[in-house]
Amino acid sequence: MTEQFTDYDSPWKEVIELYFPRFLEFFFTQAYAEIDWTRPYDCTFADFDLARRNYVLQSLSSSS
């Protein structure tokens, strides 16, 4: 019997890559405002995960 693999990860990553500036503008307004969008960028999800963790930690420390 063969197992089926359902890829739930790729579709949302493709959408974020396609609309990366809009994604940041909506979810991370301050970060979006500080980015020089005239320079080329590469959307790597390892960097995004690190940025998200830092954002969450910063949010938690400023709310206490």
Rank of each mutant, 00 (worst) to 15 (best):
E3K: 12
Q4Y: 13
T38H: 06
R52K: 10
E25V: 00
M1N: 02
S61Q: 11
D7M: 01
F23E: 00
F28L: 03
L60E: 13
S61Y: 10
F23D: 00
R53I: 08
E34T: 07
R53H: 07
A46W: 05
D7F: 01
L50S: 10
W37N: 02
E34K: 06
L60K: 13
I16R: 01
Q30H: 13
L57W: 08
A31R: 05
E14N: 14
P21M: 06
A51M: 10
T44K: 11
P40T: 13
F45G: 00
W12L: 03
F45T: 02
M1T: 03
D47R: 12
D42Q: 13
E34I: 02
Y32A: 03
R53K: 11
V56Q: 04
L18G: 14
D7W: 01
K13L: 08
E3I: 11
R53D: 04
L60Q: 12
F26Q: 01
E14F: 09
T2N: 08
A51E: 05
Y55S: 04
Q58L: 11
A46L: 13
I35E: 01
L24W: 05
L18M: 14
L24V: 09
T6Y: 11
Q30D: 14
F48E: 04
D42L: 11
T2G: 06
Y8S: 04
A31W: 03
Q30A: 09
A46F: 10
D36P: 02
L50R: 05
F20E: 00
V56Y: 07
L24C: 05
Q4C: 10
L57G: 10
S63E: 14
F45C: 01
D7I: 02
L57C: 13
R53T: 02
R53C: 03
L50K: 09
E17S: 14
E34Q: 05
N54L: 13
D42V: 14
L24G: 10
